[in-house]
Amino acid sequence: MPQLSLTVNGKSHAVEVEGRTLLVELLREKLGLTGTHIGCDTSQCGACVVHVDGRSIKSCTMLALQAEGASVTTIEGLAKPDGTLHPMQEMFREHHALQCGFCTPGMVMSAIDLVQMHPDGLTEHEIREGLEGNLCRCTGYHNIVKAIAAAWPLMHGKQVPAAAE
């Protein structure tokens, strides 16, 4: 089986994977990072979103081998080592932006990338459009939109230091 080297949440891994192994399968089954979820088989739901070299991607739509040499961040890698949550995680909690929690990891990872890509401001319309690739069946998105809007100033302002990526 082919060899793969990559960094996940700051830790280096050298693993053997089948050519057909998806990045999400590597994360969940080989590395035990079960915070990243699988909600569909057609790249529609976004439960599997992680960051690869700082950008959000659906890890069910990328072969593990394509991540050779990459730096991957999953939901488990967002909080600081002392447990302090990333501002996006904190705002999801504050605004009740999750219910069953299953879509949440992908939703948070997408939302962080969305905020990072909009340093000059983010309207409600842009947030709703930006969540096009993520499905939630519990919240009706109302509170997710509120949480992301509330996280924007925290991520771009001076109140809270930028999160480690």
Binding site: R28, L33, T34, G35, T36, H37, I38, T74, I75, E76, L78, A79, L85, Q89, F92, R93, E94, H96, L98, G101, F102, T104, P105, V108
Partner: peptide
């Protein structure tokens, strides 16, 4: 009250059956 369960869900520490 903010939810007690959110800490584990937001950190990716939920325990779903496929996990």
């Amino acid at each position: 009250v903010r939810r007690k369960e959110d800490g584990r869900f937001l950190a990716g520490r939920g325990n779903y059956v496929d996990d």
